[in-house]
Amino acid sequence: MWPDEVFAVLKTFDVRQVAYVPDAGHARLIERARDDAAMRAVPLTTEEEGVAVLAGACLGGQRAVLLMQSSGVGNCINMLSLIRTCGFPFLALVTMRGEFGEFNGWQVPMGGASEAALRLMGIQVARADRAEDVGEVVEAAARMAYLGGAAMAVLFGQRLVGAKRFVE
């Protein structure tokens, strides 16, 4: 499963703090992180907390990652000033809503703006829309963030994650 490949990349890069606001698309990765003795899972009340956690982790010499869904991108905007101004490495893994087969129209405005919003704040954006691409794309982004000091987001397309099905 592709979430296991993401987890393997995080282990390869010795990521020690996994900050997240849950999303169904991240459920397995969150579970893997919570079960790993060398990783600290940090559930958040809002995604911008996670931006600050990543900065603090870096100050203390640890690598961290932020997991969220696309609606959370909007919550992070001003806090991303911290990443840019201080040159913190940054890796966010974003499951997309509101872009492919989305039942819930409330997800569409932020989902549709997530990539542009990240770019406006100076975050480099990569996408994975097929399961076979996920490991390679996350590995490339992790390399840029943790070895190159870049600010990166990887968007996991809704076609990959699967649109939530509602029964009426």
């Binding site: 600050a52 956690v53 203390g60 806090m79 911290l82």
Partner: peptide
């Protein structure tokens, strides 16, 4: 010392990331 000049609302959570990374400090 790490001083913030922006990122309002983030100070406590920077402290969390730092504290978790350096549990002996």
């Amino acid at each position: 010392n790490f001083y913030l000049w922006g990122a309002m609302g983030g100070a406590a959570m920077i402290g969390v990331g730092l504290a978790l990374a350096q549990p002996g400090v």
